[in-house]
Design a protein around this nucleic acid. Structure first.
Length: 895
RNA sequence: GGGCGCGUAGCUCAGUGGGAGAGCGCUGCCUUCACACGGCAGAGGCCGCAGGUUCGAAACCUGCCGCGCCCA
């Protein structure tokens, strides 16, 4: 049983220590069922599904940005929504298989040694043992996930859905098997989808060589052939054409002629195609349909044969003639040497170009012809396009909408099969005649020929094929037509929050498949956060050694500090630089917040948050802080619209530290340490009320510290008596500009006195009397105690007008002047020098105002209030200058 | 090659037409009874460059330079 009772006030330490607090509170929240929601719970539905982290994953800072989802869900709960946030994991096909294979390798085994079934069992065992780690790490961040709804992309319900979707799409004629050019990773030994291929700028070599005319011998004078250029000479073994641009006059006479392959018994035609860029290289391009996507497309247009010369293991095959058996890169050099020896090599030059690499292994991707399963995406993408363009799904930040549209418009069919074992096995069976039977359950006989000798497809589906179903499979969807209470309530999801880097992989696919099968968008808003970078704004990467482990921050500063540091930087759509300094700073803030509450608890004398006292009883500082609270509250509410976390954090940070702690608490001390009991109880009531609202406003961002402090403040006992489920604050008062202006008079005078003190090296403990002349003397005399305390004065007296005397200094503030006896208080020469500097500044400002007002265009065309403000500025600078002069003169008499 | 974004204090970033802001860092003073993880005060910016629009530009337009990302 967890003890959830708060520490007695007297035992509160002087500094906040998150250790212990966070894990205790999380356990309390979870065991009290506060994270769980049911479809028939009251309130407007609000749903987010957690982008499922890889089962192989460990927590990294990218996951830390899930805090934005947590804040959305917590805010939704407090505003009365029926809010659910569903956790789960992704089985991450290739990654997980690789991890387990690596483990096997340490035992000297490969997956083939174990065989398919035993290997899969081994992976499951691994998942059981290590797979849940990341979910526990997510708990450390305080995430209010509905753990009772945890799902896995490879569990049984999700797997049934995958099979249903595959079979249905096949029935609809959209999923087909074809021999097509795909991107192949020789290291993973599997096909990749387009987006698993990174284009990396690479220093390579451009090789130019000549294909000799079939009727001419090489080496003779005159035109003996046609020159081509390539960065991959080994592919020339698979060349089946040479293409030139139809309008290229240089080649007009050679289209239709034939060249002879120098190393193979093959002749190659010269064809014309306007895809060719006549400006590039010689203007003639070698065409290798089996190893280049553009060439493949051209081969289809011209009905050219496609000859594969490279095998899946990246060695040259039998079609490569004498180069057969060589590694592709060895073959590259060997071909160049052979060309040279044949006198066909023209030259080689350094050439930087983009090379497709496997995003997982970094190995150079080989375009290969292969039998694979493809999804015809056009019909799905068109539906998604229409939804995005109709605004059924809102893309935030808006500029990213263009990317969605562009990407959906240019989609190629999706290669969904993968030559690995860990994943959803493709529900297709082949008979001896290679007839295909696609079925939900293992079929008894071939649908075409009745053969009972069936073999299931060895391949599994791309992991994204299952994760695209996530927004509805987590709510019980297993087949078309399924309607569960959860789906009725929470589909479409409210928000899909993720980094913009997986929009193509994942987000747009959910959009397409969700619309296709449920006829509705999977989420009404797509919210893209930026990527977490290091303190210098660099992308975090292992090779830079700048990767930050969020758990380290949680250990040292607490999860709230990490969360706050991230929120403070998290503006819509921009990347988030995170440096240890920020987390440190956030922790200091939390300590400040903690001590604000601690101060209150030591002085509230048992007062707990309740109704505010009657207006008539409120003092100036009370009215002021309530007005400022309303400003902050409204700013936070505004910022929840666009989820502008940085603005939200800044508004609350500023209110908490610069207004509440720096001014209101100091003002409250004057009352609380005084002897007016009525005033004390008013102050206590206001303080308790403001702190309660403040903790609620902070809670979605920093849930632990606010919950802990709120329990202290209110005496709440935990369990369902939790800040997590309290009502979101609404306006207590209206913003009162008059009160704010009045308090500003006090603040202004106090600040000017402090400035005088600081600039003249007058110790804070040194009290002195002040003579004040002010247009707001009435106001100030009502708050003599306040001003005296905050400015550290001995006394204040009021006069109609300050009389300049030698040996005094005049402090100018907005609503008047104040006079200080200098004798024994200041260094006269230093003060004089300071005044001269101020004079310079004031003269400069006056000059600017005068120049502006002398401009007839300005006076005539600018709005009247702007001109009036400028005249005020001019007058006020004139007054300042006159006053500063008087002060300098007064000091001169002392010297 | 196409597209998008960025360039503001030493660093990281807010700021979308009317006197430059924050956090951290820096300087000085202060261990005053919530907090030294603190308080008070201060220094520090041709707002990338050049044109243009405007009475007025960090902001709007054009060009250039530099950096980053995505796509081909």
């Amino acid at each position: 049983m967890t003890d959830t009772r708060p520490t007695p006030v007297d035992d509160l330490p002087t500094a906040y220590d998150p250790a212990g607090v966070e894990q205790r509170l999380y356990a309390d929240w979870e065991s009290s069922g506060l994270f769980h929601a049911e479809p028939d719970d009251p309130g407007e539905p609000f749903a987010i599904v957690l982008p499922p982290p890889n089962v192989t994953g460990a927590l990294h800072v990218g996951h830390a940005l899930y805090i934005t989802e947590d804040a959305m869900v917590r805010h939704a709960r407090m505003t009365g929504h029926n809010a659910v946030w569903v956790p789960g994991m992704d089985h991450a096909g290739i990654s997980t298989q690789t991890v387990v294979e690596r483990e096997l390798a340490t035992e000297g085994l490969t997956r083939h040694d174990l065989g398919r079934d035993a290997f899969i069992e081994r992976v499951w065992a691994w998942v059981e043992e290590y797979g849940g780690q990341i979910l526990n790490q997510l708990r450390r961040l305080g995430f209010s996930l509905d753990w009772e709804r945890e799902a896995f992309t490879f569990d049984e319900p999700r797997s049934r859905a995958v099979t249903e979707v595959f079979v249905t799409l096949h029935e609809q004629g959209l999923l087909y098997r074809g021999n097509r050019l795909i991107s192949w990773c020789p290291q993973c030994m599997t096909a990749l989808s387009d987006i698993e291929v990174d284009h990396v700028e690479t220093a390579g070599t451009l090789t130019r060589f000549v294909y000799p005319w079939v009727d001419q011998e090489p080496g003779r004078d005159g035109v003996t052939g046609i020159a081509v250029a390539t960065t991959r000479p080994e592919t020339m073994l698979g060349d089946t054409a040479i293409a030139v641009h139809p309008d290229d006059e240089r080649y007009a006479s050679v289209v239709g002629r034939t060249v002879r392959h120098p190393f193979l018994d093959r002749t190659i035609p010269v064809i014309a195609d306007d895809w060719v860029d006549p400006e590039f290289g010689s203007g003639a391009v070698k065409i290798t349909p089996a190893h280049d996507p553009n060439d493949f497309a051209m081969a289809e247009r011209h009905d050219l044969p496609a000859i594969s010369v490279i095998d899946p293991d990246a060695t040259m095959n039998g079609e490569a003639g004498r180069f057969a058996g060589m590694d592709r890169f060895d073959a590259r050099e060997a071909v160049v040497t052979a060309l040279d020896e044949s006198g066909l090599l023209l030259d080689r030059e350094d050439y930087t170009h983009q090379v497709g690499t496997c995003s997982r292994t970094g190995d150079v991707v080989e375009p290969l012809l292969s039998d694979q399963w493809f999804l015809e995406v056009r019909p799905l993408a068109d539906k998604a396009l229409a939804a995005v363009e109709a605004g059924d799904t809102r893309v935030l930040p808006p500029r990213l909408q263009k990317f969605f549209v562009e990407w959906l418009e240019n989609l190629h069919d999706w290669c969904v099969s993968r030559q690995i074992w860990w994943g959803h096995r493709i529900p297709a069976w082949y008979c001896g005649d290679d007839h295909v039977t696609v079925a939900r359950d293992t079929p008894d006989a071939c649908r075409e020929c009745g053969s009972t000798d069936l073999r299931q497809d060895d391949d599994v589906l791309d992991t994204w094929f299952s994760s695209q179903l996530w927004p509805f499979t987590v709510f019980g969807w297993e087949k078309p037509g399924d309607v569960t209470p959860e789906l009725q309530t929470w589909y479409p999801n409210s928000v899909l929050e993720t980094g913009y880097d997986i929009n193509t992989f994942w987000v747009s696919r959910m959009l397409q498949i969700g619309l296709w099968f449920l006829d509705d968008v999977p989420f009404t808003t797509i919210w893209n956060h930026g990527l977490v970078r290091d303190g210098q704004g660099k992308k975090m990467s292992k090779s830079f050694g700048n990767v930050i482990d969020p758990l380290e921050f949680i250990e040292s500063h607490g999860a709230d500090a990490l969360r706050l540091a991230l929120f403070q930087h998290c503006s819509p759509g921009t990347d988030v630089p995170l440096s240890p300094d920020w987390v440190e700073g956030a922790r200091r803030f939390l300590n400040k917040l903690f001590n604000t509450i601690r101060f209150a608890l030591l002085n509230l004398d048992g007062t707990t948050p309740g109704e505010l006292p009657d207006d008539a009883e409120l003092g100036l500082a009370d009215r002021w802080i309530l007005s400022r609270l309303e400003v902050a509250r409204a700013a936070v509410d505004d910022a929840y619209g666009p989820w502008d976390w940085a603005r939200m954090s800044t508004a609350l940070y500023h209110f908490t530290w610069d207004e509440l702690a720096d001014w209101y608490l100091e003002a409250a001390k004057v009352v609380l340490y005084g002897d007016d009991e009525d005033a004390k109880s008013t102050t206590r009531a206001v303080l308790a009320r403001v702190l309660d609202d403040l903790l609620r406003l902070w809670h979605p961002l920093i849930p632990f510290v606010t919950e802990e402090l709120w329990r202290h403040l209110t005496g709440a006992t935990g369990g369902r008596d939790s800040l997590m489920v309290q009502e979101w604050p609404s306006a207590r008062t209206t913003v009162d500009p008059d009160v704010e202006a009045e308090f500003a008079v006090v603040v202004d005078l106090v600040t000017e006195v402090r400035r005088f003190r600081s600039l003249n090296d007058v110790a804070p403990s040194r009290r002195f009397p002040l003579v004040v002349s002010s247009t707001r003397a009435d106001l100030l005399s009502d708050h003599v105690d306040l001003v005296t305390a905050l400015a550290g004065l001995e006394s204040i007296s009021f006069v109609e007008e300050i009389t300049e005397r030698p040996g005094t200094s005049t402090i100018v503030f907005g609503a008047g002047e104040a006079q200080v006896e200098l004798a024994g208080l200041i260094d006269v020469a230093a003060e004089r020098a300071r005044l001269e500097r101020e004079l310079d500044t004031a003269r400069g400002l006056l000059e600017r105002s005068r120049a502006k007002l002398a401009n007839e265009q300005f006076v005539a065309r600018a709005p009247a209030d702007v001109v009036a403000a400028e005249r005020d500025r001019e007058a006020s600078q004139e007054r300042s200058i006159a006053e500063l002069r008087r002060q300098v003169d007064a000091l001169d008499e002392l010297l």
